[in-house]
Design a protein around this nucleic acid. Structure first.
Lengths: 187, 187
DNA sequence: CAACATATAGCGATATATCGCAGAACCTTT
DNA sequence: AAAGGTTCTGCGATATATCGCTATATGTTG
């Protein structure tokens, strides 16, 4: 399925947009900067986004950002499709005539066309794309929660702690890191 | 200075845009989601963004995103002004005639007007806004680094670790959290 | 059938813009 | 002068869109 079309090639033209794209520095802390968001997150398989978007729109008309959120919620936060995946897919789908956009205020709400409904019906027997990723290793959840709670404590101390407390906490953090690397080392 | 005018009120009109704004769930991990980015980051003082933007543009014409990055870099990552602060400020400044936008391709490059140059000259004796935030408590840096390195280890394990390793790491994380809360408790 | 080459989907980063909320600064009153 | 309320600024979240890199999946060849 879905291996057809491509009609226009979409973004295949480099078209020289002379942007420097320096991007060296990156700030000293990291965290929010480079995908710490969810390490358990696998990269979606081929065409998953297409199917997922179609399936989601068959339930209810939505706009792009809402699709991202909904998909993230349904997979338990495991699969957070990026804007760079969703929006091009929506345009592609619209070009193919499977969905139509309706601009309401600042938002674009997408709904299935008749062709779109037919396309969803064709894959109705298959399980929902987000269900597959959601059914991952449950042991990850515990680790995630522990890490999340620790982060909360780290944040609390960083924000409301005194210099002395921060110094003590720094040692705790360094110690935890050492232990973690020790665990990583033992194969 | 700069506390004058307000000419139009800018965004003071609610103008009923009937958006639901549900926003309940938020994913189970957090981290990147709710300002974990940098706890040492103070909220900028009144009019800091205005001054900073003007000062930055006096050195070199830039576009919005570049200003955000540059400001973040100059303050050592301590002060990362948000898009929600920069873009409205740029429009305000443009409305006041201190800067002008020049659309080049997909980017809007802003430069100072003569009035803008004069405004910068008026505050030339004061230290740069980003310098003040940069010179913060140095003891925070150590804590930040320790937290950052720990996060790196946490991430490594979450991504490349086995189930056994993850289980062991979860205990380490829980233990570290307990110690952190103990430090927080002792006033 | 396995190793390699190729195509392409997904993603992070880049870029811009607006809204509602939280909090700091300011002003007024007691 | 302290207490209180008001105002306005800065910020996170929301929303959309594109580019180039990467990893995956498919197809081809030995």
């Amino acid at each position: 399925m879905h291996g057809s079309h491509n009609d226009d090639g979409r973004c295949r033209n480099p078209h020289a947009h002379g942007a420097p794209h320096g991007h060296a520095h990156t700030f000293p802390f990291g965290m929010a900067a480079h995908g710490f968001g969810a390490f358990g997150a696998q990269r979606a398989r081929r065409g998953d986004i297409r199917d997922a978007v179609l399936r989601l729109l068959s339930e209810q008309p939505m706009h792009g950002y809402q699709i991202i959120q909904e998909l993230s919620a349904r997979s338990g936060g495991t699969w957070s499709p990026s804007a760079g995946s969703v929006y091009p897919t929506l345009q592609l789908l619209a070009d193919e005539g499977l969905i139509i956009a309706e601009e309401t205020g600042g938002k674009k709400v997408f709904s299935l066309t008749e062709a779109g409904v037919a396309a969803v019906a064709a894959t109705a027997d298959q399980p929902a794309p987000w269900a597959e990723v959601a059914a991952g290793d449950p042991s990850i959840a515990g680790y995630r929660e522990a890490a999340g709670k620790l982060m909360h404590a780290v944040f609390q101390l960083g924000k409301n702690g005194s210099a002395d407390q921060r110094a003590a906490a720094t040692e705790v953090l360094a110690d935890a890191r050492k232990k973690l690397y020790a665990i990583l080392a033992e194969d």
